[in-house]
Amino acid sequence: EPSQADLDALLSAVRDNRLSIEQAVTLLTPSSGGGSGGGSMDAKEILTRFKDGGLDRAAAQALLAGRTPA
Rank of each mutant, 00 (worst) to 15 (best):
A60E: 00
L55H: 02
D8V: 05
L64P: 01
L64F: 02
S31R: 08
L55A: 01
S32M: 13
R18W: 07
L63P: 00
A65C: 07
S36Y: 14
D56V: 03
S3Q: 10
S36V: 11
E45R: 04
L11D: 00
E45N: 07
A59C: 14
T48K: 07
K44D: 03
D6T: 07
A62G: 06
R15W: 10
A70E: 07
A24H: 01
A9V: 09
A62F: 03
L7A: 02
K44Y: 11
G35Y: 02
A65Q: 12
A13R: 04
G33N: 11
E1I: 13
P30K: 09
S36F: 14
N17V: 03
R57P: 05
L55R: 01
P2K: 14
D56W: 02
L64S: 00
A58G: 06
G66T: 10
F50L: 03
D52P: 01
D42H: 08
M41R: 06
Q4D: 12
E45H: 05
S40Q: 12
V25P: 00
K44S: 10
L7W: 14
K44C: 06
A9P: 03
A43L: 15
A24W: 01
V14G: 00
V14T: 02
A65S: 10
A65T: 09
T26H: 14
L10D: 00
G34M: 12
I46K: 00
S40R: 07
A24D: 00
L10N: 01
M41Q: 08
Q4K: 13
F50T: 00
A70K: 09
P69Q: 11
V14L: 07
A13S: 05
Q61G: 08
I46D: 01
L19C: 05
M41F: 13
L55E: 01
L11A: 00
S3C: 12
D6F: 15
G38W: 06
K51V: 05
D42E: 09
S32G: 13
G37R: 09
S31A: 12
E45V: 06
S3G: 11
V14P: 00
R18T: 10
S20L: 03
V25F: 04
N17I: 02
E22M: 06
P2V: 07
R15G: 06
G39D: 12
R67L: 14
Q61W: 05
S31M: 09
E1R: 10
T48N: 06
S40G: 07
A59L: 07
G37Q: 10
L47Q: 00
L11N: 01
L28Y: 03
G33I: 12
D16A: 06
Q4W: 15
D16G: 05
S12H: 06
K44V: 09
L63S: 05
G53A: 03
A60G: 01
G37H: 11
L55M: 07
L10R: 01
G54E: 14
V14F: 03
S36Q: 13
Q23V: 07
R49F: 03
S3M: 07
M41P: 11
D52E: 13
A9L: 11
G53T: 02
L55I: 12
G39H: 13
S40C: 13
D56A: 06
L64G: 01
T26R: 09
S32E: 13
G35E: 14
E22C: 08
G53V: 01
S3R: 12
A62C: 14
S32Q: 11
G35S: 14
D42W: 09
A60V: 07
R57S: 08
Q23D: 13
L27N: 04
T26P: 04
D6E: 12
Q61P: 00
A9C: 15
D52G: 08
N17F: 03
S31Q: 11
E22V: 07
Q4P: 14
A13L: 06
Q23R: 07
A58H: 07
A70V: 11
G53Y: 04
S20M: 03
G54D: 11
D56R: 03
I46A: 02
G37P: 13
S12D: 15
D8H: 06
N17L: 06
S12K: 06
T26C: 14
A9Y: 13
A62W: 03
A70L: 01
G37A: 10
R15K: 13
G66A: 09
R15A: 14
D42L: 10
L11P: 01
D56P: 05
L10S: 01
L27Q: 07
A70Y: 01
G35T: 14
P2F: 15
T29R: 07
E1P: 09
L63T: 02
D6Q: 08
G35L: 11
D16E: 06
A24K: 00
S36H: 13
M41K: 06
K51Y: 07
L19Y: 04
R67S: 14
S36W: 13
G66Q: 13
A13C: 07
M41Y: 11
R57T: 07
A24N: 00
R15Q: 10
G53Q: 03
G37W: 09
A70M: 01
S31E: 13
S40P: 09
P30L: 14
E22G: 04
D16V: 03
A60K: 00
